[in-house]
Design a protein around this nucleic acid. Structure first.
Length: 566
RNA sequence: UGUCCGAUGGUGUAACUGGCAACACGUCUGAUUUUGGUUCAGAAGAGUCCAGGUUCGAGCCCUGGUCGGACAACCA
């Protein structure tokens, strides 16, 4: 055995810091070697690519270490939550390729247990009912550098607290009239520990428990306990919950009577250039009509990416590559685009489509004659097979593939220059026809019958190959050309008095009428193709037999355009 | 002004109990190509926030700074 291969075998795959923690726990026999994670969305919006990172992390860890991952809706605030979101979230996770088996849970499943634990805390003198308003409590909380003041209700008798809390539950009080607070430490340097609210009164209809409750637990009083109930080993969340961890542990300390205890670990959330990533901001875009719903292909939501033509594999690969760490990060959107191109290059059939048509008449091709040409569906995948393309006297080519005063390096069509029509013949441009305003309306070309594709009869070579469609056979299609939603790398940096919306790209969507080869007649929603030399496209759900609709997923890399810009 | 967290090429992530800073994206060359795509070959780009210390040896350990982030909803 060579030294080299020995090294290969012994080289450990690099682990992210959470995997290191887990492997250490396993080696120490913690949790009996179990790994059980959970993905805990609040059903108050659609999932975005940042959630995809968390989903891939939590479900991925469970897969890797032979464990389980639960789906748990964190539904403790009925005024913001809705079944629409419960449904879309499940659909998106499944689409991404993950499965929670029969472990679909809701924090609201635990409301009775949570209530009992709250009563227990009251009985132990560790919780009290506060009659003050939210404003008063807030005023007493102090600041990060100044300790808070204790509530005048902090030392009520246990009996009175028990009575008041029962009456809160019974609906005797109005929203906001009272709140149950944990008695921790108003002088704690950690603001989260300054007697945090455990329960608040909300006479609101809950999407699952209906009108059973009019008091609802806060996130902090529900989350750790839910983890505990589900026997979660690793409770993984984003960095902003780091300061909550002492409270997470404090609540657990009050209720735990086993050796087992869940551990919270935090990682940095995902940011992407030219994108905003908060549900609040995305909701604003939807509600203000800046986009057409949560699944608008310009949205960084999972449903938006799905409609845009991204594959689950590409998103999972992306999540893999960005890694997991604790420092703030901004991922270049080019990495995401690379991930889709890489996947689609292998999977998407090639098809010819002209998006900005220029008519070409092949003057030496007989009128009313047509022929069928043979085309490869995917040069990267032989099993994709081949198809037939109709060719005739009148064609469309891309306007950008013709230049009247072409530089030497322009390998496309120009007066007296020759190009190959992909899968067809060489053509030479003889005449440029213009209207009275000088706009080019038509090209007259001649073709060379000896250059037919695949015959090998041509001895000449030509530098460029362009795509085309036969006018008589092409199908008309609406093609939606999507571009980035924001003009600046960090949309949150805005001028004085303005917000992220001032950085929106006014041209993030343009719809053009294009022509595609007849092969696409039976295209179904979410079908993905590459329009040869243009980009990857996906059939939109708005598409019908009468009117095809395509969304541009991502353009092809274009080194020519790059050169032209210099 | 308190507590907690973080700092490695342009970006992101690695570097096992200290041992010549690696991989990916991006950028740039060149080759191949019936997609100016793909593929292939190659290049440039950091000496690891700063200052001390421990050590034969520090990105990793210690001390002190600097900078950045999080925390003051009856949101999650």
């Amino acid at each position: 055995m060579t030294n080299h291969s020995e090294k290969e075998e012994t080289k450990k795959p690099s682990l992210n810091f959470i995997e290191q923690i887990i492997e250490k726990e396993i080696s120490e026999g913690k949790h009996d070697g179990r790994v059980h994670t959970r993905f805990p969305p609040e059903p108050n919006g659609y999932l975005h690519i940042g959630h995809a990172k968390s989903i891939c992390l939590n479900f991925g860890l469970a897969q890797k270490y032979n464990g389980l991952c639960n789906l748990r809706f964190d539904d403790t605030n009925p005024v913001k939550e809705d079944v629409e979101y419960v449904d879309s979230i499940q659909e998106d996770i499944k689409w991404l390729g993950f499965d929670w088996g029969d472990r679909l849970y809701y924090a609201s499943d635990y409301f009775d247990q949570l209530y009992d634990w709250a009563v227990k805390l009251i009985k132990e003198g560790k919780a009290y009912v506060d009659d003050q308003s939210a404003e008063e409590i807030s005023a007493q909380r102090g600041t990060p550098s100044k300790p808070g003041d204790e509530s005048p209700y902090r030392n009520r008798s246990i009996e009175e607290n028990l009575d008041l809390f029962a009456r809160m539950k019974a609906g005797e009080f109005e929203d906001g009239a009272r709140v149950l607070r944990a008695k921790v430490d108003m002088a704690s340097p950690n603001m989260q520990l300054r007697d945090p609210a455990m329960y608040r009164i909300k006479h609101a209809h809950h999407h699952r428990t209906g009108d059973d409750w009019c008091i609802y637990p806060m996130y902090d009083f529900a989350h750790g306990q839910s983890d505990y109930i589900e026997r979660i080993t690793n409770s993984i969340c984003t960095l902003e919950f780091e300061v909550h961890r002492p409270l997470y542990d404090w609540y657990l300390d009050q209720i735990i009577d086993t050796e087992y205890r869940p551990v919270q670990t935090e990682f940095a959330r995902l940011n992407i250039t030219y994108t905003v990533m908060s549900k609040r901001k995305l909701l604003q875009l939807v509600e203000a009509g800046h986009v057409n719903g949560w699944d608008d292909p310009r949205m960084p939501t999972i449903s938006g990416f799905r409609r845009r033509g991204y594959t689950p594999e590409s998103i999972r690969n992306f999540a893999d590559r960005i890694g997991v760490a604790k420092r703030d990060n901004v991922i270049d959107v080019a990495l995401l685009e690379h991930a889709v191109r890489e996947d689609l290059n292998k999977k998407a059939n090639r098809v010819m489509a002209v998006l900005d048509p220029l008519k070409v008449v092949i003057t030496n091709y007989p009128e009313d004659q047509y022929e069928e040409l043979h085309a490869i569906n995917n040069p990267e995948d032989e099993s994709a097979g081949s198809r037939i393309i109709p060719f005739g006297r009148e064609l469309y080519i891309e306007r950008s593939d013709f230049m009247e005063d072409a530089p030497k390096k322009f390998f496309r069509l120009a007066p007296n220059r020759e190009v190959r029509l992909k899968y067809a013949y060489f053509i030479k441009c003889n005449d440029v026809i213009k209207d009275e305003d000088g706009n080019i309306t038509e090209l007259h070309c001649t073709y060379d019958i000896d250059t037919k594709s695949g015959t090998g009869t041509s001895t000449r070579k030509v530098k460029g190959t362009i795509h085309w469609v036969s006018i008589d056979h092409a199908l008309e299609a609406d093609v939606r050309l999507y571009d980035r939603l924001f003009l600046t790398e960090n949309p949150d940096v805005a001028e004085e008095g303005k917000d992220f919306k001032s950085n929106m790209n006014p041209d993030s969507l343009s719809v053009v009428k294009g022509y595609v080869e007849p092969y696409m007649v039976n295209a179904k929603a979410e079908d993905k193709v590459q329009f040869e030399r243009t980009g990857y496209f996906c059939v939109d759900k708005d598409s019908t037999a009468e009117k095809l609709v395509f969304n541009r997923t991502v353009p092809l890399r274009d080194s020519w355009a790059k050169k032209m810009n210099k």
